[in-house]
Structure formats: C-alpha cells, structure tokens
Design a protein around this nucleic acid. Structure first.
Lengths: 355, 355
DNA sequence: AACTGGCAGTCGGTAGACTCAAGTGCCAGG
DNA sequence: CCTGGCACTTGAGTCTACCGACTGCCAGTT
C-alpha cells in the first residue's frame, strides 16, 4: 500500500475526503450553471479549482450526486444541472459569506444618507435600490403598525359636512380618513371634539383607542364616527403594504414569456407575497428554493429574504425573487445589507413609546 | 346602363362609395388582426360584412391601401397587417363609440361604491381595476396638489428631539415629514409653536405658506425648520405619483420576452410615464399609436389616455398601455369610464377652497 | 368601367434525413 | 481508487423538398 502511484493525492484520499471532493464537484456545477444557464459537463468541472481529478472521475462523482438527488440530466447526452436540493446544499454548506463589492456598499450607504421624506417613500425607493443592486425583482414589506400608540388625533374641516380625521402614531405614521356628516360642523366645535377625543385615545394603540373614544361619550355623533373610523384604520394598518421594485428584472431572469407572466401575476397579489415572505422567515430560513416554500406557481423561483427589525422583533421584510439559478451570494448580501440599513434608519426614527 | 347585372350594388358604386368600401376593407383587416394577431388575407376580408365583393376585388383594394400606407405585407406571400396609420384611421373614423358590457359597467360602479380609505388607495386600486377590465397594463397619475391650500399645521413630538410635522391640505391630502432638533422641545412649546405657524400659513398654498411661516418669526429654530420642510413638501408635491396596475398584462400582450422587458423597464421610470401621458393629452389626443408619441422605445405600443378632471382643469390621468394591435374600443371605454368615475369621486371629496 | 374567376408565382413554415459535437457510461490498466 | 480510451446516445443545426396560403395579373362578363 505504499504510495507509488503518480497521483498520490488522489490515491491517499480517505473516505471523508471523497465527500469533500463531491462537494467541490457540486459547487463547481452550481457555480457554473448559475453563470451560464447551460448544463455543465464533466470536463468543465474537472478544470475547476479544488477538483484535481480527471473528467472520468468527475463523471462517476456526478453520477453519484445524481443518484443522491443533487443533480439531474436534462437528457442523456447532456451535462448536469442542479436540482433544488443541489442549490440548497450549495447555499447551506458551500456559499461563502459573500461580500458585496465596495462600490455597491458605498451606493447603499449613500442612498440611505440621502433619503429624505418619510417611511413610505424610503421603502418604495429601497425596493428600487435592491432591484438595481441585483438582477432580480425586489419586494419590501412594510412593518405593520403593531404596537404603535396614538400620539395625536385631529379633526380638520375640509368642506361643508366633510371632515378629515388625522391620527398620528408613535412610529411616525399618519393615518387619515374623511368623514361625511349630515349636518355641518362648526370649526370650533370640531376643534373641541378633536381635543376631547385625543385626550381619550392618546397613548393607547389604535384598536384600544377606538374603544376608549367610543366610550368617552364626547359629542354624540362625532365620537361615534371617529371611533368607527379608527377601528377601520386599525384593521387596515394590519395588512402590510408591499412595494415592488424592478419588475422588469423578471423578464431578464426567465426565458419563457409565459413564466414571466405568471410570476408577475403572483407578485401582483400582495397578500400572497407577504404570506410567503413571513412563512420563510418564520421557518428560520433566509432562502427558499423552488418548491421549498410550498407555493406551486413559484416552483421555478427562489426567494431570498431578510427581516427588518424594529425595536425587538421582526416587523418587516425585504426580499428578492429570481430564478432558482440565481446568484445566492449576491442576493443574500444585498438583501442583508439593505435590511440592516433599513432597520437602523427605522429604529432611529421611531419614537420609543414614551417621551 | 340599366342595372341588369347580378351585382348591381357593386356596379353602380360611384367613386365616393369606393372609398367607403376601402374603409370597410381596412376596418375588416384591423378588426381581424386585433383579434388574431395573424396577417389577414383577401379571402377573409371578402367574407366580412359590409364588403360584398370578391376576394380579387379586395386584393386590389388592399394593394391600394398598401400604396397609401395603411397596410403592409410582412412578406410577399402573406396577408396584410395594419400600419400605425392604418390603426389611426381605424380609431378616428371607424371605431364605433364603443360601450362596455353591462357587467363591466356594473363592476366599475360597484368598485367605486365600495372604495373606502383615501385618495392614494383609491388611485392604486383604480389602476388594478383598469388592468382587470382590459388585458392591458394600466397607469394612473395622481393629481398634483396644484392650488390646494393649507388647512392645518401640526407638530407632534415622537421622541426626544424628534418632531413630526403634519400638514393637511384643502384637497384632503396629508403631508408629513419628521424633523430632528438638537435640543429637546417641550410638549406645550411645540403646541404653541404649531398654533402660531398654522395661523401664519393657513389658507395659502404650500409654497406661499412656507414663506409666510419663515417670515412669521415664530420660535427661532422651529419656524425656520418648518418653513424649509414645507418648501420641500411643496416641491415633492409637484412630482405626481404614478400607480401601475397589472404589469403582468404586458407579458400577455407581447410575444418576445425582450419587448416585455424593455416596456416594463420604461414603466418603471415614472417620470417618463407622466410626461408621456401629459404630452398626449396636451395634444388633444386620447390615443397615441406606435411612434406618434415620439418615444422610440415604445414604438410597438399604443397608449390610451383619459384625463381626470378636478374642479376646472385636468389634473390627473389614467392610461392603458398595450400593443398597437390593442382593442381600442374596449380600452377607450374602460379608460373613459374609470376616469369619469374617478373625477366625480375626487370632486365630491375635495373641499372647495373656502368653507 | 367595375368586378369576377382562374391561374401562375412567391415565400414562409414544417417535416424528414443527415451530420456534428458534447457528453456520458463503462472498462481495462496502472 | 483513479485514469485514458472508446463506444454510444442524443439534441441542435443544416439542407431539401413540399405544402399551403397568399398575391398579382389577366381575360372574360355585365
């Protein structure tokens, strides 16, 4: 058993090492396929760094990887392409931490330094930013009001019998709703009512405030209408807003126009998107590949998610949607960078409940 | 010259009538092509109602129409397809007024009866509605603040050193912006300052109000910051918001994924969209076909526009974007219906300046 | 003069045969 | 256990022939 072979390294590789080589083969296949979208053959892989064996050996490794479900052959005389399981292994074990280029980091930083305007605008533009940092479509789910408390309630007369209810919450968001009354309301009566309502509701969350206002018995009709409307706001505030960035990226990612259509169609259903992202996050994942998210129509897609953390819990999310053969490293670092930056800004802005 | 021919109508058609027949031929070609996206041949046209001549005659008419630039042949042995000029003639002279089905009318009515929430939400959802009424992508451009006047100014403390400026305008819109101060501001000082600022600015439009507030000399630092921020709001309010509905419709309209990508890419540039729609409206058109709008990348598209009229002038717009072979009748009636309905709602809501 | 049927001519699109290149599986040998 | 060599498979590309859908033109009819 003396190592007199011309390929000693190959000869002495113990079993454990073999697995490592297979991993290297898998990595080579995935990397190559991500770049070229073409089935990759054993010759290509043999040339990859970390794989110091002949193409014949690679072939047997690839056959094994196929048996184990990491690769598939589109047809007999073609190279291999990764399965979802293959991508999964790549993401979990092989993908290096992945750092964005300095240029991109700088771009993100500059973006967040320049953003003015309020949360909605920031989120909207962040989704565009994300889609420009990567070749994928981006989604940003706005944090729900959650436990934000009422900071101010105001009634503004807009026209005869038309009054605008404006509620400011502790997270800096403003909800408005117009109310129509049968009788005209005097300017100073409105102000008085507004003050009373504010006194009743301030400091509580929207739903509670609505109840308190209803019970406060201030001005018969008005308080009732305001209470009802605040309850509406509370309900509406729970359904998170979704911002979509760079939908045209989808048309770059997929060949078939039919796929583009169906994926775009899904992105239009905001509720689905929110549920999907939350699901993935709840399962503790940051990547969902192919059918992992259990949503059939997106079987050819992968989703990369990063939470936006405000205060102590995940309340929003940013995501990237691309083909399963997406560049996970790039996508992950972009999503993480933007979500971190977003979290920081939002934390800085939102008040801490009590002054 | 007694009409003893078996085809008397054909025989006695004077020159002017001939034109009418050509128009009928053109109409048949356009209608058919809109429906099938396939070059249409003389045999098909000959069978169309209103064209009571043989295919040979139709052929010579089609040749004439091609000479005049209304039709083209993709290749020698194929049928004809309309040119932009052909579509234009169709739209201007041939397209019947076009009424939406009762079901659609009812759907629109119901939609507008149910919409609650405020303008932004209404516009957003109107764009979705429009894209569902037709197989095309929809855009809605929000009315700019224009001459809306300030109805209320409020300063709300969110956190130490963090204050939210909330301005309510007479059209029911609410602008907010957070201000950061170096020193902490007392709750009641803020209220006092807010009241003073409101007194200075109320009744003027945003830009004027900003100047007035700046000059009012209320509270040294605060008034200055508020004035600056209000000016920012005035500027931001001028750039109209664009809502895009049903982008996936684009993937249905075009065969080539490349076209889908580029058109989607253009839709993402909101400024371009706004300019385009305004341009078309300013030229008094409601349809722009192919290159008529002078925007090269959209040469394969047609745009249908309808103004949203608030008070006395066009301040917003709804539009539909589809292939040049779109169903103009359907698109026009849908856009008109939604824009009319939208105008009415907005007029009802926006206060009339003075109480 | 206007319209018609008939006919030759023009192409695009499809189907089949063939070739080519990429890539595999297997095997004997080191 | 790995390697080079070899036979085999198969999609993709090319070429050809053919079919069908049109058109343009023309002589004939009313």
């Amino acid at each position: 058993m003396a190592p007199h072979s011309p390929h000693p390294t190959a000869h002495e590789r113990p079993a454990e090492e073999l697995d490592r080589r297979r991993a290297a083969v898998l990595e080579a296949v995935v990397s190559e396929y991500i770049g070229t979208a073409t089935p990759v053959g054993s010759a290509h892989v043999a040339r990859a760094p970390g794989v110091n064996v002949s193409s014949a050996t690679v072939r047997s490794d690839m056959a094994a990887l196929e048996r184990d479900g990491y690769l598939v052959q589109p047809h007999t005389s073609a190279g291999r392409i990764p399965t979802d399981k293959g991508y999964r292994f790549f993401v979990d074990h092989l993908a290096p931490p992945g750092v964005l280029g300095a240029a991109e980091r700088h771009r993100v930083r500059r973006f967040f330094d320049r953003v003015h305007g309020e949360m909605e605008e920031m989120l909207e533009r962040a989704s565009t930013l994300l889609s420009q940092l990567t070749p994928y479509a981006a989604v940003v789910v706005s944090p729900s009001h959650g436990s934000a408390t009422v900071r101010s309630v105001q009634l503004v007369s807009l026209a005869p019998r038309l009054v605008l209810l404006v509620v400011v919450l502790s997270d800096g968001s403003v909800e408005k709703r117009s109310l129509e009354f049968f009788e005209d309301q005097g300017e100073e009566e409105l102000a008085r009512e507004g003050a009373a309502i504010q006194r009743a509701g301030i400091g509580s969350d929207l739903a509670t405030a609505a109840t308190l206002v209803g019970a406060s018995g201030a001005g018969p009709r008005i308080a009732e209408a305001v209470a009802r409307t605040m309850r509406e706001m509370a309900e509406a505030g729970e359904s998170d807003q979704v911002y979509m960035g760079g939908p045209s990226r989808l048309a770059e990612s997929f060949e078939a126009v039919e796929t583009v259509r169906s994926v775009l169609g899904i992105l239009e259903k905001q509720l689905v998107v929110v549920t999907l992202l939350r699901d993935v996050l709840d399962r503790g994942l940051s990547v969902a590949i192919g059918t992992e998210h259990g949503y059939e129509p997106l079987a050819s897609c992968a989703v990369v998610v990063a939470p936006v953390i405000i205060g102590d819990h995940e309340s929003g999310a940013v995501g990237l949607l691309g083909p399963t053969r997406m560049d996970y490293r790039q996508a992950l670092s972009a999503a993480n960078l933007v979500s971190a930056e977003l979290s920081e800004r939002m934390n800085r802005r939102s008040g801490r409940g009590d002054d």
